[in-house]
Nucleic acid binder design. Structure first.
Length: 593
RNA sequence: GCCCCAGUAGCUCAACAGGACAGAGCAGCGGCCUUCUAAGCCGCGGGUUGCAGGUUCGAGUCCUGCCUGGGGCGCCA
């Protein structure tokens, strides 16, 4: 931000430094000014002072002291009048602070926001396509809070990348085959034949049958022979079994779709494990023929010795198993084929991102390395966006196999129920339809916010109490600020006043709010660069807080006409920025609540 | 054994590619609804950023070692 202003500044700075024989650095170090109620940027003078001390051999001269002297010298010799937009220059504790003229810039910022509307914070198209694969649930299993993090993180990353100017392909990858499916089918055929899932909760029913299958097999291990026989039938392509598989798979998919609708998450391309299985097996054969894979069948599996192939120290990428000794496929078999298929369908992908939990880091490195060894030039464009898992209090890992989970459906329903009660309590005057809409917005917003308002590589401990706490740093706080802004505009009525430059001395709370609004587009880029939605959740909160401060300090409707006109525009700009920030987090911005 | 991640207030977490006195929320105590929605705001208390070194003008942030916790490591996904 303020690149133009800094450029002009540096031209003035150079001769002043040279006059003092201070070495001019290649780049100056700028920082944000931490003081509230001001707007501008700071220049750290320490590096200049350190360079001077070194160049002149000034032994025993403390750099901080020298920096402050230098800052004062510069402040005294720079004329704010010669620097566009700069109102005041101040030397403080080794920093040279440039305060901007808030009257000038506030108008620019507000006009821009209101002009760009929903596009404010969105950057020009880059003409680069990226694919983001996320969510990846298994059919025939439950969907639990653990899936929520990956799903929301992936979705928000897509939104952020889109806003940063990338063309995003949203991909999902469903685990629709494998042992878990066969076990499920075995249990169904033997104990539930002909049954159908209840319409209101298909996922739970599917998940329960899977848990039951595991329990039965655990209690009677001799039954495993039946499951193995079934797997054989599957592998031979038994039409009756395949038909049942497709039918039951559909039940899972319908259950997933319901959840995705609630979460407002969609996909452009859905891959199935089953569709890349044969390709994967063929690929492994080819790898064997080319000497990349070592075929130990039937005594052992087909493996790739990555460390040897890549000349890495033993134990770095270890050995990668790509096919079972009985010739059946593994996750790895299919993932190799999937990566290739993605680039066949979208040859121009600048990046193919895998939003997958951190436990699979080594595994994904192995996939990427294997593809590289195979000679695919795009292998360098594969990227693992790792996130830590969701655990229950006491570090209890969620396990679909034992059914030790918090079902996503239950969580969402409970959150909505809870939100309903709060809406009823806070705003009983609302009509029934609106109450319901607000309850949804608040409940889902809260869940999404907590999933994504955390460093990607830190675990989320799921706790009912905290997940359903709508106070403090949470989505409703931000939504509420949006509602208040809307309320002022509604009461003002009519069209917004024409653009105007403020004539009154801006209140520090006004300045803070404007500067939070102004910084939003930069935050979007930062979030995109680091694949870090946390940057945006933090900013959305800061923005809401700045608005609440402003709201509590600066009257809008009661203010004298010119101030009122300016503040109305400011409120409209704040509302728009809040809405845009929430949209990037896939959180609704209600008009009332 | 090797590798990865984390350790910040009583609790849950921030700290924008090293920068100003380490900030919020929750919990606790005390205030603010005849003025734009109190899902809000204000105030009080609370810290040797796991430990020990190092680099730097400057370290929660980078490097080394150690401690604690979590995860991964050839036929699960």
């Amino acid at each position: 931000m303020f690149e133009r202003e800094k450029q002009v500044l540096e031209q003035k700075l150079r001769p002043l430094l040279e006059a003092r024989e201070v070495p001019v650095p290649e780049a100056f170090t700028y920082v944000e000014i931490p003081f509230k109620g001001t707007w501008g940027f700071g220049l750290a003078v320490f590096p200049l002072a350190a360079a001077e001390v070194k160049a002149k051999g000034l032994k025993g001269v403390p750099v901080p002291k020298r920096a402050q002297e230098l800052a004062e010298y510069l402040a005294a010799n720079l004329d704010p009048g010669q620097l566009p937009g700069i109102q005041r220059i101040e030397a403080v504790r080794g920093y040279l602070n440039f305060y901007l003229d808030p009257h000038l810039y506030s108008r620019q910022v507000i006009d821009r926001v209101l002009d760009e509307g929903q596009k404010y914070g969105h950057h020009p198209r880059r003409g680069e396509r990226v694919m983001v694969e996320f969510s990846q649930p298994n059919t025939h299993k439950a969907l639990h809070v653990g899936h929520l993090r990956g799903t929301i993180l992936g979705d928000v990353i897509c939104r952020i990348l889109d806003a940063a100017g990338y063309d995003v392909v949203r991909a999902n990858y469903l685990g629709d085959i494998g042992w878990h499916v066969i076990k499920w089918l075995w249990n169904y055929l033997k104990y539930h034949k002909g049954e159908e899932p209840p319409a209101e909760d298909k996922i739970r029913w599917m998940g329960d049958l899977y848990v039951e299958a595991n329990k039965r097999l655990e209690e009677n291990p001799e039954l495993e022979a039946e499951v193995r026989d079934l797997f054989k039938r599957w592998d031979q392509g038994d039409p009756e079994l395949r038909a049942l598989w497709e039918k039951t798979r559909q039940w899972s998919i319908e259950g997933f779709d319901e959840i995705y609708r609630w979460l407002n998450v969609h996909f452009d391309r859905v891959y199935f494990e089953s569709e890349v299985e044969e390709e994967g097996k063929a690929l492994v054969e080819d790898m064997g023929a080319r000497g990349i894979a070592i075929d130990q069948r039937p005594e052992g599996p087909v493996i790739v010795n990555l460390d040897q192939l890549m000349g890495l120290p033993e134990g770095t990428l270890r050995t990668y198993v790509v096919l079972r000794s009985d010739g059946t496929s593994l996750y790895s078999t299919k993932d190799l084929a999937l990566a290739i298929r993605k680039f066949r369908e979208y040859p121009d992908l600048a990046r193919s991102i895998y939003v997958v939990d951190v436990r699979q880091s080594l595994y994904l490195k192995q996939i990427f390395a294997t593809l590289k060894v195979m000679g695919y030039e795009w292998a360098d464009r594969l990227y693992h966006l790792a996130y830590e898992v969701v655990v229950l209090p006491g570090n209890v890992v969620l396990k679909t196999r034992e059914g030790e989970v918090v079902f996503l459906r239950d969580l969402i329903q409970e959150a909505i129920r809870r939100a309903r009660a709060i809406v009823e309590e806070k705003n009983p005057a609302l009509d029934a339809v609106t109450k319901e809409r607000v309850a949804h917005a608040v409940a889902l917003g809260s869940l999404k916010y907590t999933m994504v308002a955390r460093e990607n590589n830190r675990t989320v401990t799921f706790d009912w109490k905290r997940a359903l706490d709508f106070q403090g740093v949470a989505a409703p706080y931000i939504q509420y600020a949006h509602v208040r802004a809307n309320s002022i505009l509604r009461k003002a009525g009519g069209a917004l006043p024409e653009p105007l430059t403020p004539a009154h001395a801006l209140h520090p709370k006004e300045v803070d709010l404007i500067s939070q609004i102004a910084v939003f587009p930069d935050r979007v880029l930062m979030a995109a660069r680091e694949y870090k939605p946390l940057t945006l959740t933090n900013h959305a909160y800061e923005l809401a807080r700045a608005f609440n401060d402003f709201y509590n300090t600066c009257p809008v409707l009661q203010a004298e006409p010119r101030v009122r006109a300016f503040r109305l525009r400011l409120v409209a700009a704040a509302k728009q920025t809040l809405a845009n920030a929430l949209a990037l987090l896939n959180i609704e911005a209600p008009e009332v609540m």
